[in-house]
């Protein structure tokens, strides 16, 4: 891989229809670069859950992917309500999602745990009222 690759995706609030576009694009890009399937799947899961978080909780936002020879960095940036208790938010089963999200099979409190499980680095920077930035890194072999 010669130059690092930088990808950006805008995700709109409540846009359940478009969700999956960023994750699919990340997966396809990694596939094209010859990254092993097991790793591109992890990246796709992280991106998909991140997309859904932006759709359901973050009031929309941005997903950024930086890919170089050593790693895949995936970041989501929103200016939403922020997370009051991060420790709670990463617990499996904890959710603040509303009825609509739940009826669609989201909001089971599995998004952040799924992201954490698939990432080698998992960091959340959040401030109530200002927004949340989630940074994950997957190391490449």
């Amino acid at each position: 891989m010669a130059d690092p690759i930088h990808l950006e995706y805008e995700v709109a609030a409540d846009d359940y229809q478009a969700a999956g576009a960023a994750s699919n694009s990340v997966k396809e890009t990694l596939k094209m670069l010859g990254v092993p399937t097991a790793i591109s799947r992890r990246a796709a899961i992280i991106t998909y859950e991140a997309e859904m978080n932006l759709v359901i909780h973050g009031g929309g936002g941005k997903i950024v992917a930086n890919i170089d020879e050593k790693s895949v960095e995936l970041m989501t940036i929103d200016e939403g309500p922020g997370i009051p208790d991060v420790e709670k938010a990463v617990q499996e089963g904890f959710t603040t999602a509303g009825d609509r999200a739940r009826e669609m099979g989201f909001g089971a409190g599995m998004g952040l745990p799924n992201i954490k499980r698939n990432a080698d680095v998992f960091e959340i920077f959040t401030e109530v009222g200002s927004g949340t930035t989630l940074r994950t890194v997957i190391n490449l072999p």
């Binding site: 359940y16 969700a19 994750s23 699919n24 796709a44 998909y48």
Partner: peptide, 16 residues
């Protein structure tokens, strides 16, 4: 096998 019928089902199927 699922009872969900909306578009996001396809997104998950593609990724998996």
């Amino acid at each position: 096998i699922t009872v969900q019928t909306h578009l996001n089902v396809a997104a998950v199927a593609v990724l998996k």
